[in-house]
Simulated scan of single mutants.
Amino acid sequence: MSARTIVLPLAQIEGQHLIALLDEFLLLVDAPERDEDAALQRLTPTAYPDDDEASQEYAMLTRGDLLDRRSQDAALVRADLAVFEREDGLTRRDAMRPRDAVIAGDHLDAWLRTLTALRLVLATRIGITSADAHDPDDERFGVYDWLGYRLEGLIQAADERDARF
């Protein structure tokens, strides 16, 4: 492993859940009817909020490429999680067993963009518009919060790694 590599320890079950989220995300960004989804609109915000014509033209020229990039990033992250592929019949102890997701330095940006995109999609789905605008009883908020925790951990690891160089 290179000094630029980041190791992200995850419980087996966390890795499996992240793979499931990535699979759903890939279905979303690769869907032919993707133009009508509010979550995708949040991933590709309006470039010119005061000019509908310019915004539509910009979206027509860039939206497909942006969503394709998001798909490529998510596929790369999913490949990095291969060690967590679903194992049938896991005991509770096995499910909680930590494993390492090894993130090469050139994959880190894809990880950061993908976890952020997952949070944006989830925020749209559960109606989060500000830090305190959510239903604390909604189980999906726990996933949103967990993604934020993992994203923050990656940012800190990247900062520490970069401080050494």
Score class of each variant (00 low, 15 high):
residue 6 I to W: 06
residue 7 V to W: 02
residue 8 L to T: 03
residue 9 P to L: 09
residue 9 P to D: 02
residue 10 L to G: 09
residue 12 Q to S: 12
residue 13 I to R: 15
residue 13 I to F: 14
residue 18 L to R: 13
residue 19 I to N: 04
residue 24 E to L: 15
residue 26 L to E: 11
residue 29 V to N: 05
residue 29 V to E: 02
residue 30 D to P: 03
residue 33 E to W: 13
residue 35 D to N: 10
residue 35 D to E: 15
residue 36 E to P: 04
residue 39 A to Y: 02
residue 39 A to G: 15
residue 42 R to P: 04
residue 43 L to V: 11
residue 44 T to G: 10
residue 45 P to Y: 00
residue 46 T to W: 05
residue 47 A to T: 06
residue 50 D to M: 05
residue 53 E to G: 06
residue 53 E to Y: 10
residue 53 E to I: 12
residue 54 A to K: 15
residue 57 E to G: 02
residue 60 M to C: 09
residue 60 M to W: 13
residue 61 L to M: 13
residue 61 L to R: 15
residue 61 L to V: 03
residue 64 G to F: 03
residue 66 L to T: 12
residue 69 R to S: 15
residue 69 R to W: 01
residue 70 R to W: 01
residue 70 R to G: 01
residue 72 Q to C: 09
residue 73 D to N: 15
residue 73 D to R: 03
residue 74 A to F: 00
residue 74 A to P: 09
residue 77 V to R: 00
residue 77 V to Y: 05
residue 80 D to N: 12
residue 81 L to A: 06
residue 83 V to S: 13
residue 86 R to N: 07
residue 88 D to E: 15
residue 92 R to H: 10
residue 92 R to I: 03
residue 92 R to L: 11
residue 93 R to W: 05
residue 95 A to G: 12
residue 96 M to K: 00
residue 98 P to Q: 09
residue 99 R to T: 03
residue 101 A to L: 07
residue 101 A to E: 01
residue 101 A to G: 04
residue 101 A to I: 03
residue 102 V to D: 10
residue 103 I to D: 03
residue 104 A to L: 11
residue 107 H to W: 05
residue 108 L to F: 00
residue 112 L to S: 06
residue 113 R to Q: 06
residue 113 R to T: 07
residue 116 T to E: 13
